[in-house]
Design a binder for these strands. Structure first.
Ligand code: SF4
Ligand code: SF4
Lengths: 133, 133
DNA sequence: TTCAAACACTACTTAAAGGTAGAATTTAAA
DNA sequence: TTTAAATTCTACCTTTAAGTAGTGTTTGAA
């Protein structure tokens, strides 16, 4: 029961930047060393985050990554979307497709509760919320 | 955010048997057709469930699978354990290893809530609970 | 006692995720 | 204007999960 590695890395990377000052510039080398994420793998993820509008990058000497958007408008879910984690899985883990509005198993309500709790995190937590002061 | 395919199949298989009468015998062919799970893949999972003590099997003509244990003592978590799903992941998805009792991020309490809800399902739901009457 | 119907075992193939390598491009300091 | 430091692009390798194939073993009805 887990997010895939890419998603976990993505969250850690963004969190790291937010925590250390979102507007500062961080090089790929710096981030990969600090977070112990393989350099090449990390840069691949960075490109996804840049394409997804989460992170802004500047190339060349003195270049690096930063976050220029308002932290309050970027949500955890946006990060996951940028790295293509499938957030809105329709079928429940137990679902065989045969259950519906009328017939549901006893797990249903419990399951929905757990699912909601997860999605609440992804959809309502912004980067602003994640700063430890 | 999901259980792996093997685990999902396992839950569906056991649920199917429970739902249609746990003490009856079901052949691999029957189950794989009814649930649309590849035959060979399914039998592999069945062996895990048999080894894990969830399912009992009888070979030969008139053989098949059934559940002879008390349904009330088998938990969803037991099924997942039998197919080797990693249930007790220590690190949280955001965790970088640096957080601890004293320092925790704002997500922590929400995260623990969601995690607990999941584990509650796995550890407290028995097969008995899953019967739709 | 035969033999077909069932599960079990071993080994392989395919697909997807995770990870690596190297060259191309961009940039600004020297 | 050179050059080193940075991101980006394309292609490949490795590992793990998912799925397939074939053979062996067990069992009970005929
Ligand atoms: S009733 Fe709800 S919990 Fe049960 S299998 Fe269907 S979707 Fe899943
Ligand atoms: S404080 Fe809690 S939620 Fe935040 S990273 Fe650490 S374990 Fe995860």
């Amino acid at each position: 029961m887990k997010l895939n590695t890419t998603s976990q890395y993505a969250i850690r990377i963004v969190t790291f930047i937010v925590q250390n000052g979102a507007n500062n510039k961080y090089t790929a080398k710096d981030i990969s060393e600090k977070l112990s994420i393989p350099y090449k793998y990390m840069t691949k993820i960075m490109t996804l985050l840049v394409d997804g509008g989460i992170i802004s990058s500047s190339r060349g000497r003195e270049g690096g990554y930063s976050i220029e958007k308002e932290l309050a408008i970027i949500k955890i879910g946006d990060i996951l979307e940028a790295v293509k984690e499938n957030l809105h899985q329709e079928k429940c883990v137990i679902g065989n497709g045969s259950c519906n509005k009328r017939e549901k198993c006893i797990l249903h309500d419990k399951w929905i509760t757990a699912k909601k709790a997860m999605q609440e995190i992804f959809e309502n937590t912004t980067l602003e919320d994640m700063i430890i002061r």
